[in-house]
Design a protein around this nucleic acid. Structure first.
Length: 493
RNA sequence: GUCCCCAUCGUCUAGUCAGGUCCAGGACACCGGCCUUUCACGCCGGCAACACCGGUUCAAAUCCGGUUGGGGACGCCA
């Protein structure tokens, strides 16, 4: 059996977006499943739009996602000789011809056709030029492009698509497309095929937006005498208005970088992305890498475009709710030591990291992040909502301040008192702090919740959180007492 | 205007190829209840879809035709 070889060929004209990441992911899965190879090929033939930052961004993005490749990155521009040779071969074999029509002429014809609501295809003006006419034009110094000579015959060009079945297109519906620019530089359609042949690509997994390219590229494979790879066209990802998601119209929300900055787990993003247009045929939605590689098949890729459910301006669901849910799932269930490494980076970035968290305070650190992760959504929450566990410099949220502190002015004296009692405790355990708290509430003739939620606000700044007695123990006696004693400033504003 | 692809809950989707076990299953979201010191934690429950019309058949989400709707492509971009 021949080796499975797939490729991810981004054009470096912007950051890596989730559509590209999804394409990379499916190719990666297919390579890994078959013990094959994934080739990263940067398609930088559009010199005007390609940038170094973009190349770095794509590589960064893939690396962060954990999508490793086996060959490359190759750069398409390094193989321009191959492309030119292929073009010459097509010219020599009569599969292509020189076309001297100018852009202006073509543009005029296209507009006229569009205005007349007619076909906008190339009319074949230069297809039947005699060798003498060609020589004449060349001697006059007229620039020319090279067009592929689409067979003028009955019937269809067909290919088998792993997800869509047989795709057919009549020869007569395909125009003589340009394969080399007038400046001598070959175009995508040709380069892509030449590179795939050279890289011995066996499966081409790409978006349905390439379907018309595929029909034309099949012609190229045939003319070049190369075997045709297996195609799998995946459905596109659209926005709620059913428009293709793009960097241009959707901005950062579709960039992989955004999710990294927002504290998402890379595998959670992959898990979400793979479910956009693929499913295993079972109810399973959460997969480890190994499970996903095992379960993945080309045939189960959906034919239907999916919607990235993102509503602008929604603070709670700042991206697709399902993505957030999957991220939460991993945040809550992943190995705590693995999570610790990620939280460490977050704390370091905020200047809150303490080396002792990997030394004498390690048990405390692991227990604490395990305690608070249940209500968190992203890694960022550890330094925002969870900041009070690692620093005295945390914000008291307005809502709990009003509801749990200002509403009960007596807390100004009660809380320091409670702090005093907690400080005098012989053993600072959940049972003991609970006993003391409830006893004091009973003495005062108030509901325990007033004291408890007052403490929550003062000690964590948050409206919600884990069991308060567990929180007290996590914070430790010294911190609890210090914070409870110093609350006058809360009443000042 | 031409060509190609597609059509199940709000969203992601199972079921379609091999018609009956589907008055359509799961997940997310939403709503309600429980737990409780709080909560965007957890548990339990609920709402919610086969685009439309015709045909084939004892029987259609499933097969066929049409309609409508959506998407993609129609560059000397990739």
């Amino acid at each position: 059996m021949t080796e499975v070889r797939v490729r991810f060929p981004p054009s470096p004209t912007g950051y890596l977006h989730i559509g590209g990441a999804r394409t990379a992911l499916l190719n990666w899965l297919w390579a890994r499943k078959n013990n094959g190879k994934l080739i990263l090929r940067i398609e930088d033939t559009d010199a005007d739009r390609s940038t170094q930052e973009s190349i770095a961004g794509i590589i960064d993005g893939l690396t962060w996602l954990g999508l490793d490749w086996d060959e490359g990155p190759y750069f398409q521009t390094e193989f321009s000789k191959d492309h030119q040779q292929a073009a010459q071969k097509l010219l020599d074999s009569g599969h292509a011809y020189k076309c001297f029509c100018t852009r202006e002429e073509l543009e005029k014809k296209r507009e006229a056709a569009l205005a007349a609501k007619k076909d906008v295809r190339y009319d074949g003006t230069c297809r039947h030029l005699t060798p003498e006419q060609i020589r004449e034009k060349e001697e006059m110094g007229l620039p020319s492009v090279i067009r592929f000579k689409v067979p003028q015959k009955e019937g269809v060009v067909a290919y088998e698509d792993k997800v869509l079945g047989t795709i057919e297109r009549a020869y007569s519906d395909i125009e003589d497309f340009v394969i080399v620019r007038s400046n001598g530089k070959p175009l995508y359609l040709l380069c892509n095929v030449v590179d795939d042949i050279r890289d011995r690509i066996t499966h081409i997994i790409r978006g349905q937006d390439h379907m018309t390219n595929t029909s034309r590229q099949v012609l190229l494979y045939q003319a070049l005498g190369a075997p045709i790879p297996v195609f799998a066209h995946m459905p596109l990802t659209l926005d709620l208005q059913k428009k293709k998601i793009s960097k241009r119209s959707h901005g950062e929300i579709v960039s992989v970088q955004f999710y990294r900055e927002k504290g998402f787990l890379p595998w959670a993003l992959c898990n979400f992305l793979v479910l956009l247009g693929w499913n295993p045929g079972t109810d399973q939605e959460i997969f480890s890498r190994e499970e996903l590689i095992e379960a993945f098949t080309l045939e189960r890729i959906s034919k239907v475009n999916s919607v990235f459910n993102y509503q602008k301006g929604n603070a709670k669901f700042f991206t697709d709710p399902k993505l957030i849910a999957i991220n939460e799932h991993y945040l809550r269930s992943m190995e705590i030591t693995e999570l610790a490494q990620l939280v460490k980076k977050e704390l370091e970035a905020e200047g809150l990291w303490d080396e002792a968290y990997e030394g004498e305070k390690q048990d405390w650190f692991l227990a604490t992040i395990d305690l608070i992760r249940d209500r968190f959504h992203t890694l960022k929450d550890f330094t925002t909502a969870g900041r009070a566990y690692f620093s005295d410099d945390y914000e008291i949220m307005a809502k709990p301040l009003k509801k749990n502190i200002l509403k009960h002015p007596e807390l100004k004296t009660w809380l320091p008192q409670l702090g005093q009692r907690l400080g005098e405790l012989e053993s600072f355990t959940e049972e003991e702090v609970e006993r003391v708290s409830r006893e004091m509430a009973a003495e005062l003739g108030i509901k325990p919740g007033i004291l408890i939620n007052g403490m929550r606000t003062v000690l964590t700044g948050q409206l919600a959180g884990p069991s308060m007695f567990a929180v007290l123990v996590a914070l430790g006696r010294e911190t609890v007492v210090r914070r409870l004693r110093n609350i006058d400033h809360l009443y000042e504003a």
